[in-house]
Amino acid sequence: MSQGVTDDQVPAGQDPVLAVEDLSVCFEAGRQLKALSQVSVTVGRAEIVGVVGESGCGKSLTALSVMGLLPHNATVTGGRVVLEGVDLGSLNGRQRRDLRGRRMSMVFQEPMVALNPLMRAGRQVTEVLSVHSLLSRPARKERTLALFREVGLADPEARYRQYPHQLSGGMRQRVMIAMALAAEPSLLIADEPTTALDPTVQSQILQIFLDIRDRLGTSVLLVTHDMGVIAEVADRVTVMYAGRVVESAPVSEIFHRPAHPYTAGLLASIPARNADRGRAEDLPTIPGRVPALGEITAGCPFAPRCERAQTRCLQEEPGLLAAGPAHLAACWYPLEQDRLPAPARSET
């Protein structure tokens, strides 16, 4: 379905920091439910790659597969994850654990519950250094305070001693980011890092990602369902739908020449960023809903919601095909590339 995808996506002559290749993941829930179907994503050095899609499309699962932190009832049934040339599937548990927090780290969606409520913020960060470095205790503290300053935490000494419940959501997320950056990983995975935060804090947090990318050359895999966030920071985007990659292209391509009707639909539902609108729930969205796991049958999974669907779409599932330079889309009838498409809904 998506053969040779990765080669198209990364600039020639540069090994990607992360290459997810044809990854499939199943849930065991009485029967096997396929949650990810041959997902491929690559992240180059110092690149910020966005993964977008509606709730339940498998963004978090993709991120957790990379970290090796899938829920117990999920198994990888195909494909591989390569981090800096190392196939993570070939490593034993201990080797894999050693990479976590050191070469790759993750910031989670819910800063309110992602921190240990009984441990001071400072210690939760120094722990990374205890695990992965030989720094002395005072050196670990120094480093943590420096990290707190880097992520924009005012009064780091006070934050260091505070417990999570004494910090605001934004501060907790900054602590999470400090934790993720502590061992200077090559890859930072951020799973909806700003969803729970208010817009000003959101921009500040996104700015941190841009900052570390520029300063440290850190690669970022940024999971979000917000195209606005993508527009703000990402270099490339992978659009997911029902556990599949449906489109993948540089940001400007996606915004100006989306090929997949689903992507076009997502774009049409972006809030006017400057018009300070409410939350995403109030906004026009794509009609219909995402098929549940196990509900997906033959054909293109988006076909039931697609204005452009033809007979072929209902019978045969499209693979990823070139839709432009470094641009792939899984659609039999991609939107024409020479015009800005109208939103999927308004065509009737």
């Binding site: 654990r97 927090g101 989670f108 519950v113 992602a114 009984l118 722990e127």
Partner: peptide, 26 residues
């Protein structure tokens, strides 16, 4: 099942460390 346990594992903490450093007290 709590999220902070996943956070601890994402740091690369060992099973023992997760159990005795994080889960036990909670």
């Amino acid at each position: 099942d709590r999220d902070y346990v996943r956070t601890a594992r994402a740091k690369g903490a060992s099973g023992m460390r997760v159990m005795f450093g994080h889960v036990l007290r909670n």
